[in-house]
Design a protein around this nucleic acid. Sequence first.
DNA 1: GCATATGGGACTATCTTAGTCCAATATGCT
DNA 2: AGCATATTGGACTAAGATAGTCCCATATGC
Lengths: 156, 156
Amino acid sequence: MLRISKLTDYGTMILVYLAAQTGKVCSANDVASGTRIALPTVQKLLKILARGDLVHSLRGADGGYALSRPPERISAAEIVDVLEGPLSITECSMTDSQCELEEGCPVGDAWQKINRTIRGALDTVTLADLAHPPHEFPLPQPSARRGKIVERRSHD
Amino acid sequence: MLRISKLTDYGTMILVYLAAQTGKVCSANDVASGTRIALPTVQKLLKILARGDLVHSLRGADGGYALSRPPERISAAEIVDVLEGPLSITECSMTDSQCELEEGCPVGDAWQKINRTIRGALDTVTLADLAHPPHEFPLPQPSARRGKIVERRSHD
DNA sequence: GCATATGGGACTATCTTAGTCCAATATGCT
DNA sequence: AGCATATTGGACTAAGATAGTCCCATATGC
């Protein structure tokens, strides 16, 4: 249904990788080999993440990147914002360009609320949660198939 | 941030329009003029909605479309499913094609949960909610700005 | 049979996305 | 100072998804 781009997925992986290095400065090369993502892509992503202030950069020899904050203080919402841009769920609900259908379109308002709900969900998730298996989400778990089985009962 | 396609937005508008006609059969032409969406687009969307069982179709002269269920029984999640396809928030979390990054990728799991959270949010919203201003959402309301009107004649 | 509709699909132009590469700048070390 | 290393910024291309249109077959009512 709703999508995030691959870049966002990769970017999240990179952040998770950096989180695992606990503050150490890693070059783009390190990250690339650590995550197995193509180097140029890693470079691109790291630039974006640096501009979004999610990572801190050090130039020059022995330079590299490190998280700008502890993982607990980086939310999934921020990550999506930085990597996807501040896009909203519908076009007309974010830009000033209101469509001419507006009048007969009481829909956008509702989509906006849905959007806000989704945003709220993303706000509750931190990079730390993404990094190590926390499983403290307010949600049931139908059928998680994915190699490693994790023992966890759905609380709530 | 997260996006739905324009088609989904339009499709929702169409459903809202049909909901307002309370069961009456409307031709694609009716819907097009009622929503001011380009006719070919409306036709395309109605076909998709019919295949997704959200609307019922009547062929032949005097034929047309009507909601297949009362608006209260159509959820936003269904709408998104039908119009966007059963895509998941990340690619690798939906297909069986596990990426080779998997091992170092404890991320997908978390995205899946986020995905499920989002889905839960969409499940609570019905077409009836989208149709008339209900404002009975379990959510605070920061700042809904929706003001200026811009001409965007992309079709018609 | 004719007018009116939907059904299914093909088709194209356009936009976005993914991914790559290059020149400029900054830093550490010898 | 000079060289190697690394980020910065931007341009660039190829591939894919999206939006939108159109055509022909089929079904129904008069």
